[in-house]
Amino acid sequence: MNKPKIYIDGQAGTTGLEIVKRLSNREDIELLKIPDDKRHDDVVRKEYMKEADLVFLCLPDAASIEAIKLIDDKTKVIDASTAHRTNPDWVYGFSELSNQQKQKIKSSYRVANPGCHATGFISIVYPLMKHQFIQKDTLLSCTSLTGYSGGGKSMIAQYETEKTSDLYAPRLYGLSLQHKHLKEMKQICHLEKTPLFCPVVDDYYRGMLTTIMIEGNKEEIVQLYQDFYQDTFIEVTKDEETYLSANLYAQKDNLKICIHGNDQQVMISALFDNLGKGASGAAIQNMNLMLGLEEYKGLSY
């Protein structure tokens, strides 16, 4: 049987580089690598896309929309940008939401990879909505802490080579409360109200910690998550930590739900790697499903 051929459009970006690194030693796929001087040549790009069985788009939103025009309908695509995450013609690439969602990913030719902050938010909120611990009209408040690699090459350079005094402290951003991940958070979780969302970037390379707080009984909520995520890539713990460090799952591709609180108020946190389950790891997980491979092959956990 021929090995599936994989092409990464945008292989020089942060997400693209991570996928290249993870796939380079895979013996069950063939990685097509375009020469650096041809990365922006649409004629050559189209040739690589035509040869591939699956294409990763690791591009800015507008560039992803243009790239789709170069790809044959018979070629499978995973888009890592924001461009298609709320598009009904694309499947949202979060297999742990349900067995039905996993089957949709397996059979789809167009999968939108979730956003990093959205991954944390949805992993927490979707089970609560599904089992009516919260209602559609609930106004949720969420904080999400990320390492600076989430800002791409320009932010990495800023922190590592052009560092100023303000970069030694946590920095709130998205201050207009209109972060680009909010649309998918709201749509996938079937919320009527846009969440109040505060992202924070800090002086470490990779890792993410997304948190919401709700009223409820801790033991009931722990049981809900344990049942919901049974036999998935998401683990659930309670009261294991005195502190939660956002880089604890750096270099891992799975996600941990951490639950703290009491019988009236509960803090629920998603701990994962913004470059792992929040980007490249999730993309490879979706690739494995779309190509009929073992779902967690090549992933770290």
Rank of each mutant, 00 (worst) to 15 (best):
K104Y: 06
K104R: 05
K104A: 06
I105Q: 06
S108P: 07
Y109C: 13
Y109A: 11
Y109G: 08
R110L: 10
V111A: 07
V111N: 03
V111D: 07
A112W: 00
A112Y: 07
A112F: 06
N113Q: 11
P114V: 06
G115I: 03
C116K: 07
H117P: 00
H117L: 08
A118G: 08
A118K: 02
T119W: 04
T119P: 00
F121K: 10
S123Y: 04
S123V: 10
I124H: 04
V125Q: 06
Y126K: 15
L128Q: 13
M129L: 05
M129G: 07
M129T: 03
M129Y: 05
M129D: 01
K130T: 14
K130I: 03
H131A: 02
H131S: 02
F133Y: 15
I134D: 08
I134K: 04
I134P: 05
Q135L: 03
D137V: 05
T138M: 06
L139N: 12
L139P: 05
L140R: 04
L140F: 11
C142F: 00
S144Q: 04
S144R: 09
T146S: 11
G147W: 05
S149W: 06
S149V: 06
G150D: 01
G150Y: 02
G151M: 05
G152Q: 05
S154W: 10
M155R: 06
M155S: 02
I156P: 13
Q158R: 12
Y159P: 03
E162P: 00
T164F: 04
T164E: 14
T164H: 10
T164W: 06
D166A: 02
L167R: 01
L167D: 01
Y168K: 08
A169D: 13
R171W: 00
R171Y: 02
L172V: 14
L172W: 11
L172Q: 12
L172M: 14
Y173L: 09
Y173K: 09
G174T: 08
G174C: 09
L175Q: 10
L175E: 14
S176D: 15
Q178G: 08
K180V: 13
H181R: 00
K183W: 09
E184H: 11
K186F: 04
K186N: 13
Q187Y: 01
Q187I: 10
I188M: 03
C189Q: 02
C189S: 10
L191M: 12
L191F: 09
L191R: 07
E192C: 08
K193G: 01
T194M: 15
L196F: 15
L196P: 05
F197D: 01
V200K: 08
V200P: 09
D202G: 01
D202W: 03
Y204K: 11
Y205I: 12
Y205R: 15
R206C: 15
G207W: 04
G207S: 05
G207I: 03
M208W: 03
M208V: 13
M208F: 11
L209G: 06
L209C: 04
L209F: 01
L209I: 00
T210V: 07
T210D: 10
T211L: 02
I212K: 02
M213P: 01
I214N: 11
G216R: 08
N217F: 09
